[in-house]
Design a protein around this nucleic acid. Structure first.
Lengths: 105, 105
DNA sequence: CGAATAGTTGCATAATTGGCCAAATAGGGA
DNA sequence: TCCCTATTTGGCCAATTATGCAACTATTCG
C-alpha cells in the first residue's frame, strides 16, 4: 500500500474517530436542529465547559462543525448535514445486531 | 440525559469507534468485494498477524464482520453491507473539506 | 501420534484519549 | 481603564488503545 493510499485511510479514519464519542455524537445530533453555544451544550451534557470545548474542537477540526463567535459566546453549527445520514445507517446496524443477538437465545 | 439515552449514545459511538482506524477501514473495504483470511489481510496491511487478528475481532464484536472457520483458516466477510454507505458519505465530507481548505488560500 | 500451519491470547510497552482544575485569552460594559 | 463573563489552553493523571513477540490452541496431514 503506497503512502498516498495509506494517508487516505488515515484521513477517512479521522472522520470516524471524530464521531466515536458519546458526547460528540450528542453534540452533532443537537446541532442538526440549530446552533448552540459552548456553555449551553456543556450544561446539556453535564460535563465541564473545558471538556466540551475540546470535543467541539475535535469536530471542528474534522470539518464537521463551524464556529461563529458573536459577542462573548461561540455558537457552533453543523457544517456537513450529510453526516446525519450516518446516523440512519447506525440505526440499521444496531437493529440488525440486536436481531442477531436475539436469534442466539 | 437519562441512563437509557446515554447508553444509546455509547452503543452508537462504539460503531464509529470500530471504524476509526485506518487498518480496520481498509479491511472493511477489502471485505466488501469478498472474503479473505487473516494471513492474507495481514500481508496486505503489512502488520503482524496478531495485530490484524485483533482488528478483526474489534469489527466482529461491533457486528460488522462475520468469521467462518474452514480448515486452518478463518475467513472473514462483511456482515453489514450498509456500512459501505458510510464510505460514500465520508467521501463527500472529504471533498467538502478539501474545497473549504482551497477557498482559504 | 507428531510435525507443521493458521489464528488467538497473554504480556509488556508506547502512544493516545478524556477528564477536570486552574490559568490565559477575548469581548462587552460601567 | 477595570471588571465580569465565555471560551480556550496548559498541566496533570487515569484509562484505553495499538502493537509485536512469545506462548498457546486448533486443525490438517504424514
Amino acid at each position: 500500500m503506497d503512502k498516498k493510499t495509506e494517508r487516505g485511510y488515515e484521513v477517512r479514519a479521522g472522520i470516524f474517530k471524530a464521531l466515536a464519542h458519546p458526547s460528540r455524537l450528542f453534540i452533532v445530533e443537537r446541532l442538526a436542529a440549530g446552533e448552540w453555544c459552548v456553555g449551553e451544550l456543556a450544561e446539556m451534557i453535564g460535563a465541564d465547559v473545558s471538556t466540551v470545548s475540546r470535543h467541539l474542537a475535535v469536530l471542528k477540526n474534522a470539518g464537521i462543525l463551524r464556529a461563529d463567535k458573536r459577542g462573548l459566546q461561540v455558537y457552533y453549527r453543523l457544517h456537513l448535514p450529510c453526516i446525519l445520514r450516518f446516523f440512519d445507517c447506525v440505526g440499521e446496524v444496531m437493529a440488525r445486531n440486536a436481531e442477531d443477538h436475539r436469534k442466539l437465545e
